[in-house]
Design a protein around this nucleic acid. Structure first.
Lengths: 130, 130
DNA sequence: GTGCTAATAGGAACTGTTATTATTATGCCA
DNA sequence: TGGCATAATAATAACAGTTCCTATTAGCAC
Protein backbone atom coordinates (compact mmCIF):
# COMPACT_ATOMS: atom_id res chain seq x y z
CA UNK A 1 0.00 0.00 0.00
CA UNK A 2 2.84 2.40 -0.80
CA UNK A 3 1.56 5.74 -1.94
CA UNK A 4 3.74 8.36 -3.52
CA UNK A 5 3.33 11.61 -1.68
CA UNK A 6 2.90 14.69 -3.83
CA UNK A 7 3.43 18.23 -2.80
CA UNK A 8 0.72 19.57 -0.54
CA UNK A 9 0.40 23.11 0.69
CA UNK A 10 -1.31 21.95 3.86
CA UNK A 11 1.28 19.35 4.74
CA UNK A 12 4.00 21.93 4.21
CA UNK A 13 2.13 24.42 6.40
CA UNK A 14 1.75 21.82 9.15
CA UNK A 15 5.42 20.98 9.18
CA UNK A 16 6.37 24.63 9.07
CA UNK A 17 4.13 25.36 11.99
CA UNK A 18 5.69 22.55 14.03
CA UNK A 19 9.20 23.66 13.15
CA UNK A 20 8.38 27.22 14.13
CA UNK A 21 7.23 26.46 17.65
CA UNK A 22 8.96 25.10 20.72
CA UNK A 23 5.61 23.92 22.01
CA UNK A 24 4.34 20.40 21.44
CA UNK A 25 0.82 20.99 20.20
CA UNK A 26 -2.04 18.53 19.86
CA UNK A 27 -3.72 17.91 16.52
CA UNK A 28 -6.48 20.28 17.53
CA UNK A 29 -4.07 23.11 18.28
CA UNK A 30 -2.37 22.61 14.92
CA UNK A 31 -5.78 22.62 13.27
CA UNK A 32 -6.73 25.96 14.79
CA UNK A 33 -3.36 27.48 13.94
CA UNK A 34 -3.73 26.45 10.30
CA UNK A 35 -7.31 27.57 10.20
CA UNK A 36 -6.24 31.09 11.19
CA UNK A 37 -4.34 31.41 7.91
CA UNK A 38 -6.55 29.26 5.72
CA UNK A 39 -10.09 28.93 7.07
CA UNK A 40 -10.95 26.12 4.70
CA UNK A 41 -8.60 23.46 6.14
CA UNK A 42 -10.30 20.43 7.54
CA UNK A 43 -9.52 18.62 10.77
CA UNK A 44 -9.29 15.37 8.84
CA UNK A 45 -6.56 16.86 6.69
CA UNK A 46 -4.59 17.85 9.75
CA UNK A 47 -4.80 14.36 11.24
CA UNK A 48 -3.94 12.67 7.96
CA UNK A 49 -0.89 14.84 7.42
CA UNK A 50 0.34 14.70 11.00
CA UNK A 51 0.21 10.93 10.89
CA UNK A 52 1.82 10.83 7.48
CA UNK A 53 4.65 13.10 8.57
CA UNK A 54 5.15 11.00 11.69
CA UNK A 55 5.23 7.78 9.66
CA UNK A 56 7.86 9.29 7.41
CA UNK A 57 9.87 10.21 10.46
CA UNK A 58 9.69 13.91 9.70
CA UNK A 59 7.99 14.76 12.98
CA UNK A 60 7.42 12.93 16.28
CA UNK A 61 4.13 11.77 17.70
CA UNK A 62 4.09 11.78 21.51
CA UNK A 63 1.61 9.68 23.48
CA UNK A 64 1.32 11.36 26.82
CA UNK A 65 0.49 9.67 30.10
CA UNK A 66 -2.98 11.16 30.15
CA UNK A 67 -3.73 9.52 26.80
CA UNK A 68 -3.50 12.64 24.66
CA UNK A 69 -1.31 12.87 21.57
CA UNK A 70 1.11 15.72 21.01
CA UNK A 71 3.35 16.43 18.03
CA UNK A 72 6.93 17.58 17.89
CA UNK A 73 8.55 19.18 14.85
CA UNK A 74 11.95 17.90 15.90
CA UNK A 75 12.28 14.30 14.68
CA UNK A 76 15.69 13.71 16.26
CA UNK A 77 15.62 11.40 19.27
CA UNK A 78 15.19 13.39 22.44
CA UNK A 79 13.04 13.22 25.52
CA UNK A 80 10.13 15.03 27.05
CA UNK A 81 8.90 16.38 30.29
CA UNK A 82 5.27 17.05 31.22
CA UNK A 83 4.33 19.47 33.96
CA UNK A 84 1.64 17.96 36.16
CA UNK A 85 0.29 21.41 37.01
CA UNK A 86 0.01 23.23 33.68
CA UNK A 87 0.31 20.23 31.37
CA UNK A 88 3.01 21.80 29.22
CA UNK A 89 5.36 19.50 27.37
CA UNK A 90 9.01 20.53 27.29
CA UNK A 91 12.09 19.14 25.60
CA UNK A 92 14.71 17.53 27.74
CA UNK A 93 18.09 16.33 26.60
CA UNK A 94 19.93 13.45 28.19
CA UNK A 95 23.48 12.22 28.19
CA UNK A 96 23.67 9.55 25.43
CA UNK A 97 25.81 7.32 27.67
CA UNK A 98 22.97 6.97 30.13
CA UNK A 99 20.66 5.90 27.34
CA UNK A 100 23.02 3.26 26.10
CA UNK A 101 23.29 1.89 29.63
CA UNK A 102 19.53 1.89 29.80
CA UNK A 103 19.03 -0.26 26.73
CA UNK A 104 21.82 -2.57 27.82
CA UNK A 105 20.29 -2.97 31.26
CA UNK A 106 16.89 -3.69 29.77
CA UNK A 107 18.32 -6.26 27.37
CA UNK A 108 20.18 -8.03 30.17
CA UNK A 109 17.73 -10.73 31.07
CA UNK A 110 15.11 -10.21 28.41
CA UNK A 111 14.44 -12.84 25.84
CA UNK A 112 13.30 -10.71 22.92
CA UNK A 113 14.85 -7.85 21.00
CA UNK A 114 14.79 -4.35 22.44
CA UNK A 115 14.77 -1.85 19.63
CA UNK A 116 14.20 1.35 21.53
CA UNK A 117 12.35 3.13 24.26
CA UNK A 118 10.33 6.22 25.09
CA UNK A 119 10.89 8.08 28.31
CA UNK A 120 8.50 10.63 29.70
CA UNK A 121 9.53 12.65 32.71
CA UNK A 122 7.01 14.43 34.86
CA UNK A 123 7.02 16.90 37.72
CA UNK A 124 6.76 20.67 37.97
CA UNK A 125 8.04 23.06 35.35
CA UNK A 126 10.11 26.13 36.27
CA UNK A 127 7.03 28.36 36.31
CA UNK A 128 4.80 26.06 38.33
CA UNK A 129 7.33 25.11 41.00
CA UNK A 130 6.95 28.53 42.63
CA UNK B 1 -14.06 15.73 47.22
CA UNK B 2 -12.83 12.80 49.31
CA UNK B 3 -15.12 9.82 49.17
CA UNK B 4 -14.84 6.91 51.53
CA UNK B 5 -14.69 3.71 49.60
CA UNK B 6 -16.87 0.89 50.81
CA UNK B 7 -16.53 -2.73 49.98
CA UNK B 8 -17.51 -3.62 46.45
CA UNK B 9 -17.70 -7.09 45.03
CA UNK B 10 -16.89 -5.79 41.55
CA UNK B 11 -13.87 -3.80 42.62
CA UNK B 12 -12.56 -6.84 44.45
CA UNK B 13 -13.14 -9.02 41.42
CA UNK B 14 -11.31 -6.54 39.19
CA UNK B 15 -8.29 -6.41 41.44
CA UNK B 16 -8.28 -10.19 41.83
CA UNK B 17 -8.41 -10.59 38.09
CA UNK B 18 -5.45 -8.26 37.62
CA UNK B 19 -3.46 -9.98 40.34
CA UNK B 20 -4.16 -13.35 38.79
CA UNK B 21 -2.79 -12.57 35.36
CA UNK B 22 0.66 -11.71 34.05
CA UNK B 23 -0.94 -9.96 31.11
CA UNK B 24 -1.62 -6.25 31.10
CA UNK B 25 -5.21 -6.08 29.91
CA UNK B 26 -7.19 -3.11 28.65
CA UNK B 27 -10.41 -1.99 30.34
CA UNK B 28 -12.36 -3.85 27.70
CA UNK B 29 -10.56 -7.13 28.33
CA UNK B 30 -11.19 -6.79 32.07
CA UNK B 31 -14.83 -6.06 31.33
CA UNK B 32 -15.27 -9.25 29.31
CA UNK B 33 -13.44 -11.34 31.88
CA UNK B 34 -15.73 -10.08 34.64
CA UNK B 35 -18.77 -10.47 32.49
CA UNK B 36 -18.02 -14.17 32.06
CA UNK B 37 -18.57 -14.68 35.78
CA UNK B 38 -21.21 -12.04 36.35
CA UNK B 39 -23.10 -11.10 33.17
CA UNK B 40 -24.67 -8.05 34.79
CA UNK B 41 -21.49 -5.98 35.26
CA UNK B 42 -21.40 -2.76 33.33
CA UNK B 43 -18.51 -1.29 31.38
CA UNK B 44 -18.89 1.95 33.31
CA UNK B 45 -18.35 0.07 36.55
CA UNK B 46 -15.14 -1.43 35.20
CA UNK B 47 -13.79 1.96 34.15
CA UNK B 48 -14.78 3.58 37.42
CA UNK B 49 -13.14 0.91 39.52
CA UNK B 50 -10.00 0.63 37.41
CA UNK B 51 -9.49 4.37 37.72
CA UNK B 52 -10.28 4.31 41.41
CA UNK B 53 -7.83 1.49 42.06
CA UNK B 54 -5.17 3.31 40.04
CA UNK B 55 -5.76 6.55 41.95
CA UNK B 56 -5.36 4.69 45.21
CA UNK B 57 -2.12 3.24 43.91
CA UNK B 58 -3.37 -0.32 44.15
CA UNK B 59 -2.88 -0.98 40.44
CA UNK B 60 -1.00 0.75 37.61
CA UNK B 61 -2.48 2.46 34.58
CA UNK B 62 -0.22 2.27 31.52
CA UNK B 63 -0.58 4.69 28.62
CA UNK B 64 0.92 2.92 25.66
CA UNK B 65 2.55 4.59 22.67
CA UNK B 66 -0.38 3.74 20.43
CA UNK B 67 -2.66 5.68 22.76
CA UNK B 68 -4.34 2.67 24.38
CA UNK B 69 -4.55 2.21 28.14
CA UNK B 70 -3.53 -1.03 29.85
CA UNK B 71 -3.74 -1.99 33.51
CA UNK B 72 -1.25 -3.80 35.68
CA UNK B 73 -2.10 -5.54 38.95
CA UNK B 74 1.41 -4.98 40.26
CA UNK B 75 1.56 -1.44 41.67
CA UNK B 76 5.27 -1.56 42.51
CA UNK B 77 7.44 0.59 40.23
CA UNK B 78 8.69 -1.45 37.33
CA UNK B 79 8.90 -1.04 33.57
CA UNK B 80 7.22 -2.37 30.49
CA UNK B 81 7.95 -3.65 27.04
CA UNK B 82 5.57 -3.67 24.12
CA UNK B 83 6.03 -6.03 21.19
CA UNK B 84 5.53 -4.16 17.93
CA UNK B 85 4.36 -7.34 16.21
CA UNK B 86 1.82 -8.89 18.57
CA UNK B 87 1.22 -5.87 20.80
CA UNK B 88 1.74 -7.80 24.02
CA UNK B 89 2.88 -5.88 27.07
CA UNK B 90 5.49 -7.58 29.23
CA UNK B 91 7.14 -6.69 32.52
CA UNK B 92 10.75 -5.68 32.49
CA UNK B 93 12.94 -5.06 35.50
CA UNK B 94 15.82 -2.65 35.53
CA UNK B 95 18.80 -2.09 37.73
CA UNK B 96 17.77 0.67 40.20
CA UNK B 97 21.18 2.33 39.84
CA UNK B 98 20.50 3.05 36.18
CA UNK B 99 17.23 4.69 37.09
CA UNK B 100 18.80 6.94 39.66
CA UNK B 101 21.40 8.00 37.08
CA UNK B 102 18.56 8.68 34.70
CA UNK B 103 16.72 11.07 36.99
CA UNK B 104 19.97 12.77 37.92
CA UNK B 105 20.92 13.22 34.27
CA UNK B 106 17.50 14.63 33.48
CA UNK B 107 17.65 17.05 36.40
CA UNK B 108 21.11 18.26 35.38
CA UNK B 109 20.22 21.32 33.33
CA UNK B 110 16.49 21.45 33.88
CA UNK B 111 14.92 24.34 35.68
CA UNK B 112 11.89 22.63 37.20
CA UNK B 113 11.43 19.68 39.50
CA UNK B 114 11.59 16.16 38.11
CA UNK B 115 9.43 13.89 40.21
CA UNK B 116 9.56 10.73 38.19
CA UNK B 117 9.42 9.12 34.77
CA UNK B 118 7.79 6.42 32.74
CA UNK B 119 9.81 4.27 30.38
CA UNK B 120 8.31 2.12 27.67
CA UNK B 121 10.56 -0.24 25.77
CA UNK B 122 9.56 -1.63 22.41
CA UNK B 123 10.85 -4.20 19.97
CA UNK B 124 10.13 -7.87 19.36
CA UNK B 125 9.12 -10.32 22.05
CA UNK B 126 10.72 -13.75 22.33
CA UNK B 127 7.94 -15.37 20.31
CA UNK B 128 7.84 -12.81 17.52
CA UNK B 129 11.57 -12.50 16.97
CA UNK B 130 11.65 -15.86 15.20
C1' DG C 1 -3.39 21.03 -22.73
C1' DT C 2 -5.17 15.64 -21.13
C1' DG C 3 -5.42 12.02 -17.85
C1' DC C 4 -4.18 9.77 -13.74
C1' DT C 5 -4.25 9.87 -9.02
C1' DA C 6 -2.94 12.15 -4.51
C1' DA C 7 -4.76 15.65 -1.58
C1' DT C 8 -8.58 18.00 0.00
C1' DA C 9 -13.06 19.62 2.60
C1' DG C 10 -16.84 18.36 4.82
C1' DG C 11 -19.18 15.53 7.39
C1' DA C 12 -20.59 10.90 8.99
C1' DA C 13 -19.16 7.13 11.68
C1' DC C 14 -16.60 4.92 15.04
C1' DT C 15 -13.97 4.04 19.55
C1' DG C 16 -12.81 4.58 24.03
C1' DT C 17 -14.15 6.97 28.01
C1' DT C 18 -16.92 9.68 31.20
C1' DA C 19 -21.35 11.49 33.05
C1' DT C 20 -26.24 10.83 34.34
C1' DT C 21 -29.99 8.58 36.51
C1' DA C 22 -32.67 5.49 38.91
C1' DT C 23 -31.91 1.55 41.71
C1' DT C 24 -29.44 -1.54 44.93
C1' DA C 25 -26.17 -2.63 48.55
C1' DT C 26 -23.00 -1.49 52.36
C1' DG C 27 -22.12 -0.45 56.85
C1' DC C 28 -22.81 2.78 60.72
C1' DC C 29 -25.62 3.60 64.71
C1' DA C 30 -29.67 3.46 67.66
C1' DT D 1 -31.74 -6.30 64.98
C1' DG D 2 -33.93 -2.39 61.75
C1' DG D 3 -33.48 2.14 59.77
C1' DC D 4 -30.88 5.37 57.34
C1' DA D 5 -27.32 7.90 54.69
C1' DT D 6 -24.74 7.31 50.97
C1' DA D 7 -21.39 4.47 48.06
C1' DA D 8 -21.75 1.31 44.32
C1' DT D 9 -24.22 -0.34 40.53
C1' DA D 10 -26.44 -1.16 35.65
C1' DA D 11 -27.91 0.86 31.80
C1' DT D 12 -27.53 4.14 28.74
C1' DA D 13 -26.75 8.77 27.02
C1' DA D 14 -23.24 12.03 26.04
C1' DC D 15 -18.79 13.17 24.86
C1' DA D 16 -13.96 13.85 22.60
C1' DG D 17 -10.67 12.41 19.74
C1' DT D 18 -9.83 10.15 15.67
C1' DT D 19 -10.64 7.72 11.43
C1' DC D 20 -13.37 6.79 7.37
C1' DC D 21 -16.10 8.08 3.22
C1' DT D 22 -17.44 10.71 -0.92
C1' DA D 23 -17.30 14.12 -4.13
C1' DT D 24 -14.25 17.60 -5.68
C1' DT D 25 -9.82 19.90 -6.54
C1' DA D 26 -5.03 20.13 -7.66
C1' DG D 27 -0.05 18.16 -8.81
C1' DC D 28 2.47 16.36 -12.08
C1' DA D 29 3.97 13.21 -16.07
C1' DC D 30 3.18 13.12 -20.63
Amino acid sequence: METVSRYSRNREAIQEYLLGTKEHPTADVVYHALKAKNPSVSLGTVYRNLNQLAEQGRILKLSMDDGSEHFDGNPLPHHHFTCRMCGRVLDLDLDPDILKDLNDAASADFNGVIEGHSIYFYGLCSLCKK
